[in-house]
């Protein structure tokens, strides 16, 4: 559905002193039909520029962007406008027209596409139902909450039956509860309409909750990509590890572990990572039964992703070094990730 090959974007600067800025650097990416693909990175990582190249709001300096069979990076004028009707976008700040009602905002892309008034009316009513805004048709955006505004944004984006939906930090301006309801709506749309969704975010929570695959961006480069669960299981880049920690570890983990290491110099603190089915197997029971160890559970968390669950557990094991080594080998045999924590870093 979407193919990026060797895409770079350089922003020239007017003054001669400063170097041109490479916002996106040689990015290769393939996104399949019906997939929810997440791109995560901190601000300035180039993800906004990247997503804007998918609908031609930015043109790449080099490389090619193909979306739904159109080479977005090279088409212009009428063809580009036509192609954009198949690639919708929703925004962090919703970008609704304040001068239009909910109904008229949703009708706007239909007006652009030249849909007849009677059909427009019908389609708008369908969309209002789809996003759950019945009864608010004649309200103005200023009378809506953030979540409702984003629902209007989504309805507007779906009006022309697009093939791809681009989400530019679509939940970053919303509170956690509203974020969840908007994310659920996106998953629902993805399943019901088979829509390909590309989203950019700086919150791993969003990726975990709805994405099938994820790419991590840093300094314009794509440092890591793969199925969400795999990335959770084996984050390779340092930045990915930090993002994964955002959702797998409760905030106070570091402090707790540090405290533990201080108070129990004997024994070992071990981080176990479970993926998929083995999250549900009784590992700790087996450990205690088979080895001469004291096992103390420090902290744990299980996160649901679109392709399975993922959990982390911190335990403290006390016993002879030999016994601990045996135990670790045993855990590894159970397909559970083990990492011995020597200090809180």
């Amino acid at each position: 559905m979407i193919t990026l090959s060797k895409v770079s974007k350089v922003f020239g600067t007017r003054s001669l002193k400063s170097q041109p800025i490479k916002a996106v650097d040689e990015v290769n990416l393939t996104i399949d039909k019906g997939e929810i693909f997440g791109i995560i990175g901190y601000s300035g990582a180039g993800k906004s520029t990247l997503i804007r190249m998918l609908n031609g709001l930015e043109t790449p300096s080099t490389g090619s962007v193909v979306v739904a069979g159109n080479t977005i990076s090279s088409i212009k004028g009428r063809n580009l406008r036509k192609a954009r009707q198949e690639i919708s976008m929703i925004f962090q700040h919703f970008n609704l027209l304040w001068s239009r009602t909910v109904h008229d905002n949703i009708a706007f892309p239909l007006e652009i596409a030249g849909v007849k008034k009677s059909e427009r009316q019908k389609r708008v009513n369908e969309l209002i139902k789809l996003v759950g805004l019945e009864g608010r048709e004649n309200a103005y955006p200023s009378q809506l909450s953030g979540g409702q505004k984003q629902r209007v944004g989504i309805a507007r984006a779906l009006a022309n039956n697009p093939k791809v939906l681009l989400c530019d930090e679509a939940t970053s301006a919303l509170d956690p509860q509203t974020t969840d309801s908007i994310l659920e709506l996106l998953v629902d749309i993805n399943k019901r309409l088979g829509l390909t969704i590309v989203l950019i975010t700086h919150e791993m929570h969003v990726i975990r909750k709805i994405c099938h695959r994820v790419a991590v961006m840093e300094g314009g480069r794509m440092v890591e990509q793969g199925p969400v669960l795999d990335v959770f299981k084996n984050p390779t880049a340092q930045i990915t590890k930090r993002f994964v920690q955002q959702v797998t570890e409760p905030e106070e983990t570091k402090d707790t572990v540090a405290h533990l290491l201080e108070n129990y110099p004997q024994g070992k603190v071990v981080q176990l990572t479970f993926v998929g089915e083995n999250t549900e197997s009784p590992l700790i029971t087996k450990l205690i039964r088979n080895f001469q160890l004291d096992v103390n559970i420090v902290q744990g968390k299980i996160s649901q992703t679109q392709n399975g669950s993922y959990g982390t557990l911190f335990i403290h094991m006390d016993g002879t070094d030999e016994e601990i080594a045996h135990a670790i080998t045993f855990i590894k045999e159970q397909q559970v990730g083990v990492e011995v924590i020597s200090d809180a870093e």
Binding site: L57, L80, R84, I87, L96, E111, I112, A113
Partner: peptide, 17 residues
């Protein structure tokens, strides 16, 4: 709002629109 203009462009609006 620049974002609104961007949104209109992303929908395939002509300059006259």
């Amino acid at each position: 709002d620049k974002g609104v203009i961007e949104a209109a462009r992303s929908m395939g609006a002509k300059t006259s629109t």
